[in-house]
């Protein structure tokens, strides 16, 4: 590929090579923007949920809020933020739905624990949410990522 300031034209082979390079690079970005969360990303989050629930049981709401905010930042940040389109918005919606399911599990477990008059309802609730994260949120995210890369 020429780098001359006065290049008036290029050969078709050169153009084809540049287009191939463009496609390869674009695929790199799409792959980075839609890659599935790794176990390294998800397992610590799931393991951290019950201790966070315990913080709520200890009435340390401010610490809970700070840690959750920090976790959210580390979890959602990616080095590539793809342009939003209809497909990516649908993907985000499905993913948010799975997090809502985790929240529902938290509330349901708390309801049962409080009904049975057991201690540490928030810890149990977060433990239930943790199970949903591992059993539902993560697999769904991986499936969506696989579809996005296809």
């Amino acid at each position: 590929m020429s780098t001359s300031e006065h290049t008036p034209s290029i050969s078709p082979d050169d153009a084809a090579a540049a287009l191939a390079e463009n496609r390869r690079r674009e695929a790199q970005t799409v792959a980075a923007g839609t890659s599935a969360w790794s176990a390294k990303d998800v397992v610590p989050v799931a393991l951290a949920l019950p201790p966070l629930g315990y913080l709520l049981d200890l009435d340390l709401v401010w610490l809970f809020a700070a840690l959750v905010a920090l976790m959210a930042v580390f979890t959602v940040r990616r080095r590539v933020q793809l342009r939003a389109d209809r497909r990516s918005r649908r993907r985000d919606l499905v993913l948010v739905g799975t997090f809502v399911a985790a929240l529902v599990a938290d509330v349901a477990a708390q309801f049962v624990v409080r009904g049975a008059d057991l201690p540490l309802p928030n810890t149990w609730g977060m433990a239930a949410a943790s199970v949903v994260v591992l059993a539902l949120v993560w697999p769904v995210q991986r499936r969506l990522a696989a579809r996005g890369a296809a």
Binding site: M1, E21, N22, R25, Q28, V30, V80, Q81, R83
Partner: peptide, 13 residues
Amino acid sequence: LSILSLLAPADWV
């Protein structure tokens, strides 16, 4: 070309 191709599908990189 590499930089712009990497940026094209993305919002922020």
